Amino acid sequence: MRAAIDRLHGEVAASVRVTGPDTRLVVLPEYVLSGPPEGEELSDWAERAALAVDGEEYRRLGEIAADLEVFLSVNNYELDEHFPGIYFQACVILDPVGAVALRYRRLNSMWSVTPHDVLDRYLEVYGPESLFPVADTEIGRLAPIASEEILYPEIARCFAVRGAEVFVHNSSEVASGLVSPKNVAKLARALENTAYVVSANTAGLYTGSLPPMSGDGSSKVVDHRGLVLAEAAAGASMAANAEIDLTSLRQARRRVAMENMLARQRFELYAPTYGSVRMHPANQVTGVPPRAHFRSAQERVIADLADRGVI
C-alpha cells in the first residue's frame, strides 16, 4: 500500500501538470490500494486490507492532496472502533490541505457489512446525516457514489436533494465495447439529477484470479445533460479529464423547462410506497458474520418477496 501511494503521488502530480494548474478534483478508482477480497472471511480481510481512519495511509493520501492543492477522492476498506472485527467500504474526499472533507460508507454491498446492516447502532454512533454526506466546497457540492451504487437511483437522488452537484464515482467494473449497465447508469444519474458524474475505473485487476484486463477502461466525465465529455480507453490513464461548468449546471437547475428533472420530482407520490414496502431489511448483522451470511440473507429476501407476490 505504501508503494502504491508513492506511485499514485507521482502519477497524479504528472497528470495535473498535463491537465493544468487549475485542476482541482482528482478521482481515483475503487481498490486502488488493496484490490478486492476474493472469498476471505471478514476478520481476515479486515486484518489484511482495511485501513485505520487515522492511519498512515490516509495521512499520506492527504499529503498528495495538499502537495497538489486538489480535492482527492479515494475508496478504501476501513476499520471502525465501534464495530470491531468488521470493515466498511468507504469513499473519502480529502481537501487541498489534506484534511477529510467527507467520509461515506457504502450502503449497498453484496459481500460485506454496510451501515444499513447495523443501522440502529450506526445511527446511534454517527447520526442520520452520516448516511448521505455532501461536501460544500469551493469547487461545488461534492457527493460520493461507491462502485455498483451507481446502479441504484435512490442513492444519487438522496445526495441530489441534499444539494450535490458533482458525483465522484470510484469504481471497478467490467469494461466492454458494448453499453454496459454501469455506463448506462452514469449517464442516467447525471441527467436525472442535473449533476456531473466523474467516474474512475480500475485499469485492470492484477492481484487476484480474474483475467487482469477485465476491469479496464470506461473512466469518464459526464455533464449535467448526460453527455460524455471525456473517456479513457484501456490502460492506466488520465485521459478522462474535462472542465466542470458549475455556472451552466446551476442555471439548468433554475431553468423552467421539461428537462429540469430535479425540480419536477413529486416525492409525496413515492414516499408512501417506499415507506410501506420492505425489501432487504436493516439490522441483519450482529458481531462478525461468516461470509456465507450474505448469500443466505439474499436468499431469505428473495423467498420473502416471492411469498408476497412481489417477484
Rank of each mutant, 00 (worst) to 15 (best):
G98F: 05
R24W: 04
D216C: 14
V197N: 03
T207M: 13
G62M: 02
E299D: 15
P84F: 02
D307L: 07
Y152M: 10
E299S: 12
K182L: 09
L72H: 04
P181G: 04
S199H: 07
N241T: 12
T207C: 09
H9E: 13
S276G: 13
L227N: 08
L107Y: 08
F267P: 03
D117W: 13
V27T: 04
Y77A: 07
N183D: 14
V221G: 13
V26Y: 00
R254K: 06
N76D: 07
A203F: 10
A195R: 09
R105H: 11
I64C: 03
G235N: 03
L94S: 01
E11K: 15
S248Y: 03
R291C: 00
G55R: 13
N170V: 03
S171G: 03
L61E: 08
P29F: 00
G85R: 07
V256R: 15
S296P: 02
V256L: 12
C91S: 12
A233L: 11
P29K: 05
V179R: 15
R105G: 02
R106V: 02
L119R: 11
G309K: 09
E57P: 07
P128T: 12
D54N: 13
A65D: 02
L72E: 01
V12K: 11
A50T: 00
I64N: 02
R141I: 01
S199Q: 03
I155W: 11
R291W: 02
E30M: 05
Y58H: 09
Y58R: 15
